[in-house]
């Protein structure tokens, strides 16, 4: 073992490559990345840049073709674009199931689930079934469920993409608050430039075909930002410029 750095990265990705099938197109090429504990990283890119594939590999749902991925805490919690709640269970039971699979004893689950639902301001909706909840509420239950896993790393795959703008704005605030309170490491995949600039401490822009990390921006974290604030706008303009350059490259 070489001398460990002061803080071990929460996620370390080295020379990662991914192909689907033996001679399929290269989806990810030589991605090297390390993410510090407690960091909020946004992965941004156009369709087909492999950002969801990268997330799935980190989550262990897909295997890399080359290179390695190490998640220091062992495994990660994942949130998807659709809440994917189990429709036969109430909101509370959905969270309880995650607790059960984590090995929390039966008599502690109920109270713990209510606590977690209260974190996303949904304690009153514990007995509701997913179809009785709005899209935003479902995503909040999904957030509570992934918090129930109690993993240090939370991976999010465009979790707010299907929501209306007002709801999304509120969920940005909610997520930021949860992140500050729980100190989780968050990797947030999105195709929405402003969303990335609003949320991330670090924004990674990915190029398409093959997916590579094209550029990286670090944002000074001086408290909660608003999506309308000038710094978010300024950064969005800059990122969009480069995103468009990357997309134009595919025209030829």
């Amino acid at each position: 073992m070489s001398a460990a750095p002061a803080v071990l990265p929460a996620i370390r990705i080295t020379a990662l490559g991914k192909r689907f099938g033996a001679d399929g197109p290269l989806v990810l090429d030589d991605v090297t990345l390390s993410i510090q504990p407690g960091e909020f990283v946004c992965l941004l890119g156009a369709s087909g840049c492999g950002k969801s594939t990268l997330l799935n590999i980190i989550a262990g749902l897909d295997a890399p073709s080359t290179g390695t991925v190490t998640v220091a805490s062992g495994s990660a919690a994942v949130m998807f674009q659709d809440a994917a709640l189990f429709p036969w269970l109430t909101a509370g039971r959905n969270v309880e199931l995650a607790l059960k699979l984590r090995g929390v004893p039966r008599d502690k689950r109920r109270g713990k689930a209510l606590e977690l639902l209260d974190v996303v301001n949904l304690a009153d909706a514990a007995s509701k079934r997913p179809h009785e909840l709005s899209g935003g509420m479902r995503q909040r239950v999904a957030l509570a469920r992934s918090l129930a896993q109690d993993r240090k790393v939370l991976l999010m795959d465009e979790p707010f993409a299907a929501l209306d703008a007002i709801t999304r704005d509120l969920l940005h605030e909610e997520l930021e608050r949860v992140w500050r309170e729980t100190g989780r490491t968050i990797v947030f995949v999105t195709h929405n430039v402003r969303e990335a600039a609003r949320l991330g401490q670090r924004v990674l822009l990915m190029s398409s075909r093959p997916g590579r990390i094209a550029n990286e921006w670090r944002l000074a974290d001086d408290g909660p930002r608003r999506i309308e604030s000038p710094e978010v706008s300024r950064l969005s303009i800059e990122i969009t410029e480069q995103l468009r350059r990357e997309i134009r490259r595919n025209a030829a």
């Binding site: 703008a165 007002i166 999304r168 704005d169 509120l170 929405n192 430039v193 402003r194 969303e195 609003r198 999506i227 309308e228 706008s233 969005s236 303009i237 969009t240 410029e241 468009r244």
Partner: peptide
């Protein structure tokens, strides 16, 4: 000549009371 950001991400213009 930065592009108008509201054209880039129109859904980001989220009003809030």
């Amino acid at each position: 000549m930065p592009p108008d950001t509201t054209t880039v991400a129109p859904q980001s213009v989220a009003p809030s009371g």
